[in-house]
Design a protein around this nucleic acid. Structure first.
Lengths: 406, 406
DNA sequence: TTTCTATGTTAAATGACTTGACAAATAGGT
DNA sequence: ACCTATTTGTCAAGTCATTTAACATAGAAA
């Protein structure tokens, strides 16, 4: 990135440094000392001292022990975890994950339930509410202990807090999801796209820690990407940046749910993988998948399990999906030139069997300076990437609010 | 864009508002009043008054007349054009454009000369120097009148001021272009990719004025894109973001100069277009291009001229290139979700004959929320887009330097 | 003219930050 | 054990960008 037009952060220009201090503390694993803060922010130690003591007064930050080679030991700071809890909710196409985390983003309780986004908001949101009540009581907490909620949905999120023209999620278009959730829980809610959240989660606590140019690709029923750029999410003009699932890979490919032909999702999405497996079984290929009855109940997770156990047909299907993903990612790498691509989502759980063909195809199909500087790895947080991103977003609301006014 | 990690502008945190004022003045056509500045920057009128009087003292800003409906007329401010000149240099594959502009970016002299980037830096840079001397003397100026230089090259630019692994530009890899030019001219030089500069030029003074998410695509011998995001150029991890010319459109397509198959550039670049025309003529198609002798001397500008005059074969070639460009742009639109795409470069001079197939293909192949919110137009500055972007970058150096210290 | 409205300026107050001195905490040498 | 060097953290005074609040200026409408 290179600035050619100097503008200021939209809202709170005031206390800008305070906010930066809060974020450096929370995103530096193992904490950070005042001297290190002053170095990274180009401020004097004195300035940092006043900012930090202010944050200590409000109870947001505390000191911990640490050891260094010579001279006075720096006092290491960390976010005070004891000031409350937040919720992270990741609504997927077929599953919902809910996390309760303390102020230092440590997960204290986790829940993963079947879920059908196709039921629409009138069914899904009440269900979320009751699941939240359930997990809260399991954790011995009430909604009053929750300071903010982060939520993710598998579609393009717009400013108002809803989705706009999502390729999946029928019945959700234009529904005020954020307002609904805020009304249900009575706390501030942040709504984001699930791939964005995956990127944030992996950036903050996963494989992409601290990367300045990170792309996260979520391979599940749908395929989406989250793009991070110097601490900002690339949202685009209408919130639909990163919709890699519907770029054309093969002009004459199969028809996609979005109406076009040969979209990445129609070639490498969870549905495409299971359809391919069903075809192979019907064609009489020798595979342990043929044990599944009826044939058309084969799901992508069955193929992943079979591939792990050494089933050649399944491995081939996964590998072909990897080549398609690699083709799309090569375009992304050429256009966006990330320093790291993190592959996550349900299908990615299989690891190198998917990653290797991706890596190879990206290196073949993208330009040298870009392909040389990109590392491609799988998500460290596994299925929790997006839900952890939701936690990060919820904490962003709370911590910055508290940093501003006590 | 959405911030999840608060950081500060890298260098001069001090005088941040002063810099923002300078840029709002220079990029608001027709000037801007103090009250409007205070509104856009969320500062009080009093604060703006002191900042502006400071800038007036250094002679950077002056007041002009303007008329408004009721109440006291606001005093409109503009950059004082009389404090000096800058150079904008756009090195293309086959041409070089040099502009002299005053501090308000008004071009006072222009030059366009044949040029061959393949000659390498040892030939090209001395040639630039002598051309600069020539245009300066034509304008009645000397190098002492120039405060800064902006330069563009058709390859990925890295931090140090050189290019890294460019698909074209043999012999330039790693050469310290910026340092060389700074030594030659004795003034600060800004080096950028030519597509980036096209984006900046069109954003500042062309078709993309003030767009927050702008993509500029330069279609010439090579094909590259410049991506602008809230006043920042998207450079990526190694400076090669926006390299759209080498994304794969057709896995079985023709071999590209980069070694891969079916790159956009190999299907829709200037070279691909002329090769296609040569094939058509050899195949005996009825076209006015067959008047050109020898056949293999047909250049893309001949095809554009013929298409303009109604030659059907040429029109078909251009239209097919448009479909390929549209396919690549659909991927870009899905991934980046720009509010506007500006098509520039030599081949784009033909206008709607190229634009229409692009528009249609993008709308077919990109996702609804993204395709609904993107406008696709041709460059307003024509061949000068990149050189104007270079002028903008040169002025950025000078104006912000002067804003800082007298 | 008077009145209204919007823009621009001024002086005092505020507050974030720097400067420069000092205090605190540790390692290593004697 | 003591001294010195080194690094980290704090304090008080001063600086400077910005706000507050009052006032001045300039035009339109009544």
């Amino acid at each position: 990135m290179s600035t050619f037009f100097w503008t200021l952060p939209k809202q709170n220009v005031k206390n800008l440094n305070k906010h930066a201090v809060v974020d450096l503390i929370r995103f530096t694993s193992g904490g950070i000392s005042r001297i290190e803060l002053s170095r990274q922010m180009n401020l004097t130690r004195a300035a940092i001292t006043t900012i930090v003591s202010d944050l200590q007064l409000t109870g947001l930050v505390r000191e911990i022990e640490a050891h260094y080679p010579s001279g006075r030991r720096p006092i290491v700071l960390e976010i005070n975890p004891d000031r409350g809890y937040v919720l992270g909710i990741d609504m997927g196409a077929t599953h919902v994950t809910i996390l309760i985390a303390d102020f230092s983003a440590k997960v204290v309780r986790e829940m993963d339930e079947p879920f059908d986004i196709n039921d629409g908001p009138s069914v899904c949101l009440p269900r979320i509410e009751s699941l939240v009540k359930q997990i809260l009581s399991e954790a011995g907490l009430t909604i009053k202990d929750i300071s903010a909620v982060g939520a993710g949905v598998p579609g393009p999120v717009v400013e108002g807090g809803g989705v706009s023209g999502p390729p999946i999620m029928p019945g959700w278009d234009g529904y005020p999801i954020r307002d609904d959730l805020e009304a249900r829980f009575g706390v501030p809610v942040s709504l984001s796209n699930d791939a964005e959240l995956g990127a944030i989660g992996e950036w903050a606590y996963g494989a992409g820690r601290g990367e300045r140019n990170l792309a996260y690709i979520k391979v599940g029923t749908g395929i989406g990407a989250g793009l991070l750029l110097d601490g900002q999410i690339l949202r685009g003009a209408s919130g639909s940046a990163g919709e890699i699932g519907h770029i054309t890979i093969d002009e004459n490919g199969p028809i996609c749910s979005c109406g076009n032909r040969g979209c990445l999702e129609a070639l490498a999405g969870g549905r495409a993988i299971s359809d391919q497996a069903i075809r192979e079984v019907r064609n009489g290929r020798r595979t342990i998948l043929s044990e599944i009855n009826p044939v058309d109940k084969i799901r992508s997770r069955d193929i992943i399990a079979a591939a792990r156990r050494g089933d050649l047909v399944s491995q081939q299907i996964v590998s072909e999906a990897g080549v398609h993903l690699g083709t799309a990612l090569a375009s992304l790498v050429n256009l966006f030139n990330p320093s790291m691509v993190v592959v996550g989502g349900g299908v990615a759980q299989i690891g190198d069997l998917l990653l290797e063909p991706i890596r190879q195809t990206v290196h073949e199909r993208s330009l040298l300076p870009a392909s040389r500087s990109v590392r491609i790895t799988s998500a460290l947080l596994g299925r929790r990437s997006s839900a952890m991103g939701a936690v990060v977003q919820a904490l962003s609301i709370v911590l910055h609010q508290l940093a501003d006014h006590g």
